[in-house]
Design a protein around this nucleic acid. Structure first.
Lengths: 247, 247
DNA sequence: TTATGTGAAAACATTCACAGCT
DNA sequence: AGCTGTGAATGTTTTCACATAA
């Protein structure tokens, strides 16, 4: 089965697993790298290795998009790049606003990954008057008062929040009220948003804590070199810091 | 059952689910916020709301650490903060090295979240001679040649890689060879590491692409305004951008 | 009475292993 | 002969619903 014509509807029938969606960008990056290297065709085994997954998972993931490979051969790189881009919505441009121009906001403004894959930064906004007007990566920082205007004028559909923790929810409420339904949050707070709004979170501190957990487990195993041999300190002995983390 | 004495071994018997580990830092943050607000006791319902999960999940997660609540009452905030901190390995200090002092590296160096929760930055390293010696957030940037020395001298156990994509694997190989077994990678590449080394990845571009996917689905529903209405373009018709994303 | 802790059920995700197509 | 695509099996995570304890 699976005639050429109804590939698109066969699978992808409203509903690619979330775990798969999260891996598609990784596949896409591996594919574009191969493409830059002049590779025209790739097997699931090769692509899986490049993407850091196993081949069964890769094939299952791709099968949710449709039947884009050739048995006995593999996948045509260019075709697959196009199909994944399309599935992810990267064949159209998305307009992004960056709110909060501290260290992180500046880093984001200069990040090459925005421009290069269909994400256009409409502008940078900050509440701090002393920063407003400053030129960063070819953009002039605007006052946060301009937020709603900018969203409307430029058709912003993704808001990147890089403010301090205390300002994040207020900013989030404003962008949502202005019609934005996708938010990428770098502030270390749990944002609450109405139904239908997507929030994704990038949190350095959380990643470090997860690493620490595993690191501790390794060190705790029997027989380890343990340079600064610290025992299981008694409760209360360690002055564990309570300060709330801020962006 | 579950006498006071063997709480620790009862559950947590080698093996907290990974999904739970990933949420513990979120609970911890919610708890410290409550603590700062003077709250002494919290119910699973309240804490779950603050952490952005449902209460059943929260209770199941906490049950993997032990039985730290009181039926009919809730959890003692301070006690739970300590237990989670301990489980995550935050009652000891972890030494971090940041490699790559571009925009992102600078942002990371100035990030409050490091110092405030048991993560100490041993130093900043970069290959660019013109940056070496520069003072950033109270630290002097050192040359990448010093990498192995720094890891040995300061007992670095977590490496934060914030280099361009092209340098990331080489840097990773070096830190692993020097004995580091936990890596936080900001470069947009899949790092390959030997068994026993943990890598976590933070990738802005991937997060944006996941948001774009969902945004597209929303817009794609029947009856929508669809600003740049793009049909199912034939393969090859669209000049989709191929540029590799870089940090 | 109230809210935790947890078996059991359901949903979701990964891996296996091979039929089927090129 | 080789590699995809996929049912079936296995493993993990979430949710349900209630016995249990304060």
């Amino acid at each position: 089965m699976t005639s050429r014509q109804n590939r698109q509807r066969d699978r992808a029938e409203r509903g690619i697993p979330e775990a798969t969606v999260a891996r598609l960008p990784v596949y896409l990056r591996a594919l574009t790298t191969l493409q830059d290297g002049g590779v025209a065709t790739v097997s699931s085994e090769e692509l899986a290795t490049a993407a850091g997954v196993n081949s069964a998972k890769l094939r299952k993931d791709l099968s949710h998009l449709g039947s884009y490979g050739t048995r006995g051969v593999g996948y045509e790189v260019e075709y697959l790049v196009y199909q994944i881009s399309r599935e992810l919505g990267l064949t159209q441009d998305w307009v992004v606003a960056i709110i909060g121009v501290g260290n992180l906001g500046r880093a984001l403004a200069g990040y090459g990954g925005f421009a290069s894959r269909g994400f256009r930064v409409a502008g940078l906004l900050d509440a701090d008057e002393s920063i407003v007007g400053e030129e960063i990566s070819g953009m002039t920082v605007e006052h946060i008062d301009r937020l709603e205007d900018m969203i409307a004028d430029h058709g912003v559909s993704i808001a990147v929040i890089a403010t301090p923790a205390g300002a994040a929810q207020v900013v989030c409420d404003r962008v949502v009220a202005a019609g934005v339904t996708s938010v990428l949050n770098f502030a270390p707070v749990v944002l609450s948003v109405p139904e239908g709004v997507d929030v994704r979170k990038v949190d350095l501190s959380i990643e470090l804590q997860i690493l620490a957990f595993h690191e501790q487990r390794k060190a705790g195993g029997p027989g380890d070199y343990d340079p600064v041999a610290d025992d299981g300190a008694p409760p209360g002995a360690t002055q564990y810091v309570e300060a709330v983390v801020e962006a």
